[in-house]
Design a binder for these strands. Structure first.
Lengths: 249, 249
DNA sequence: TACTACATCTCGCAT
DNA sequence: ATGCGAGGTGTAGTA
């Protein structure tokens, strides 16, 4: 199939709303929020049904270039220095990629039917739910007050008071807490102090671990760290069978 | 091609180090840092040459599931409730996805040759470079200190002094600065104060814009905002041709 | 390795 | 639309 035929195919695929993919040899220019150039090499290009464009190199987890949906996709046959090439341009807002394709190795497009939503668990909100249900994980005298306090200064994960009446702001993190987590907590504590006009407010950072610098900073602010592991998730039993083929050991 | 033949093909593709893709109907379970389930639907699965696994739904910019390289990929023919299905499992560290495939619509694999690196500009570091070269963008009396000194104190973007001898810590952002940018700047200012034992230290947030809350917080800390646009990048002239085909208007 | 911050972050949620 | 924070964040740079 020559480039002219490919252009016809690609146009049809996009008009039909098909998920369109091709393996090709190309160079890529990007201009928009930043600018980039990628010299010629083999890549896979994916144009999704909503107009998302993804370009992947043969290695690495992230797309090397992308355009957010809905991208306007244009194709053009070009001749440069005695050589034909397929020019592909995708535009969305101020972002634009220009792809010069010298060879298409493979092309396939198909309308895919999905629409299912992923059910995901193990988020930070589940950890704050757990702390509200089991406040003793923070301290024996901790009593949670309400659900998330969603203010314009950000939302507070858990909010309650200690036995001596001190208000406690809890910020929880699923992973090792760093400096930014401490800064965030500090912001909330100060906000509560100034908004409610009270001084007996403390902050508690609840996380499975904390970095040394963050702990030092936390103590400087008269706040404390409470080691709390995120909610236990059901561990799916790994399949171990002899017949299974393995690669990438 | 039946599932048994597909398994043979897939194994060969992975052994050969080919970039392997297929369109299929499947459900996906994920277990690792979190847990997820996605009910049956049509998706595209990509196994990269380094063992990265990406699964994309027909819409949306992000993979709905993924496994980081190098994933161990296993295939198995299963029979459940009178129906054959292809079971695909990818494992990397504690992360695992299990895919139950009831139909493969299309399969293609090819070894791709690349290795080119992207040349990217428009990063925040270029903005701080600009401020070091054009300190008058901050203030007529701002004198930046050397880059050497700047790294000595950590992650401070630009560091210098004003005409009256006050030390100035500059934090720059390429986009609208929010609360976290102010918190970050505040941390740096306090670090310098305690490290140098001096009090005449101020913070300047340099960004194209700042949110109202962030500006209020900034002023509370005796710091200031300086409106600075990120470095001008060469704007690639948009191609405007009549013949170009358009979709996703 | 651990820690820190950027990212063409993306995404959802609430104002 | 904007603001804010989480993310299975990923990725690079540095100590």
């Amino acid at each position: 199939m020559n480039f002219e035929e490919y252009i016809g195919q690609l146009q049809q695929s996009l008009q039909r709303g098909e998920l369109t993919t091709f393996f090709c040899h190309c160079s890529i220019q990007y201009s928009g929020r930043a600018e980039s150039y990628l010299d010629f090499g083999d890549r896979i290009i994916i144009i999704k049904q909503d107009g998302t464009v993804l370009i992947h190199q043969p290695e690495g987890g992230m797309p090397i270039n992308y355009i957010k949906a809905p991208a306007k996709c244009e194709f053009e046959l070009q001749r440069e220095e005695e050589q034909e090439l397929l020019f592909f341009q995708a535009t969305s807002g101020n972002d634009q990629i220009q792809v010069h394709i010298t060879e298409i190795y493979h092309y396939y497009a198909q309308r895919l039917i999905d629409g299912k939503k992923q059910d995901l668990s193990g988020k930070e909100s589940e950890m704050s739910d757990m702390l509200r249900e089991q406040p003793e994980l923070i301290s024996p005298d901790f009593k949670p007050l309400s659900r998330e306090e969603h203010t314009k200064y950000g939302f507070i994960d858990v909010f309650g008071h200690l036995g001596d009446g001190t208000l406690a702001v809890i910020e929880c993190k699923r992973y090792t807490a760093g400096l930014s987590a401490v800064s965030q907590l500090r912001r909330y504590v100060e906000k509560i102090k100034s908004a409610k006009g009270i001084t007996k407010v403390t902050g508690i950072l609840a996380a499975p671990a904390i970095t040394a610098n963050a702990l030092e900073m936390l103590h400087n602010f008269q706040c404390s760290f409470k080691q709390v592991d995120p909610p236990k998730r059901h561990i799916r039993k790994k399949r171990e069978q002899q017949k299974i083929q393995q690669f990438f050991s």
